[in-house]
Amino acid sequence: MPTPAEDPADALYALEPDRFVAERAALVAALRAAGDRAGAARVRALRKPTRAAWAVNAAVRADAAAAGELADAASALQAAQEGVLAGGEAAELRAAELRARAAADALAAAAPATDGATADKVRATLRAATVDPAVLAEVVDGRLVREQVASGFGGFGGMAAELPASAPPPSPRADRAAKAGAASAGAVRAGAAAAEQERAAEEERLGRERVEREAAAEAEREAAERQAAEREAAERRERLRVAREKEAAAEQAVAAARGELEQAEAALAARREQLDAAERRLADARERREQAED
Score class of each variant (00 low, 15 high):
Arg94Gln: 05
Pro49Val: 09
Ala33Arg: 10
Gly191Met: 07
Glu260Gly: 02
Leu144Ile: 10
Thr3Asn: 00
Leu144Ala: 04
Ala215Gln: 03
Ser171Gly: 15
Asp63Val: 11
Ala117Gly: 08
Asp18Gly: 10
Ala192Gln: 13
Leu27Ser: 00
Leu107Lys: 08
Glu279Thr: 03
Arg221Lys: 11
Leu12Trp: 04
Ala34Cys: 05
Val43Phe: 00
Glu232Trp: 02
Arg173Tyr: 08
Arg289Gln: 10
Arg241Leu: 08
Ala41Lys: 11
Gly154Ile: 06
Arg208Ser: 08
Glu162Ala: 12
Pro172Met: 05
Ala40Met: 05
Gly87Trp: 07
Gly142His: 00
Val254Met: 13
Ala67Gly: 12
Val145Leu: 02
Ala59Val: 03
Arg199Gly: 06
Ala234Leu: 03
Glu209Trp: 09
Asp294Met: 09
Gly83Phe: 02
Pro164Thr: 12
Arg123Asp: 06
Arg143Tyr: 03
Ala255Val: 14
Asp284Ser: 13
Glu238Gly: 00
Arg19Tyr: 12
Ala229His: 10
Ala165Pro: 04
Leu93Tyr: 02
Gln197Glu: 15
Pro112Leu: 12
Glu279Trp: 12
Leu98Tyr: 06
Ala102Ile: 05
Ala40Gly: 06
Ala90Phe: 04
Glu225Lys: 13
Glu203Asn: 07
Ala95Lys: 04
Glu6Met: 06
Glu262Lys: 14
Glu273Asp: 10
Asp63Thr: 11
Ala253Gln: 15
Leu15Pro: 02
Glu138Cys: 09
Ala74Gly: 07
Glu69Cys: 00
Ala62Gln: 14
Glu293Gln: 14
Ala228Thr: 13
Ala216Met: 03
Arg47Glu: 14
Glu69Thr: 03
Gln81Asn: 04
Met159Tyr: 11
Glu23Thr: 04
Gln81Met: 15
Ala5Thr: 14
Arg281Ile: 10
Ala55Glu: 12
Ser184Glu: 13
Pro169Leu: 06
Glu138Tyr: 08
Ala200Pro: 01
Leu46Val: 06
Val60Trp: 03
Glu82Gln: 13
Thr130Cys: 13
Ala278Gly: 02
Ala256Leu: 10
Asp36Lys: 08
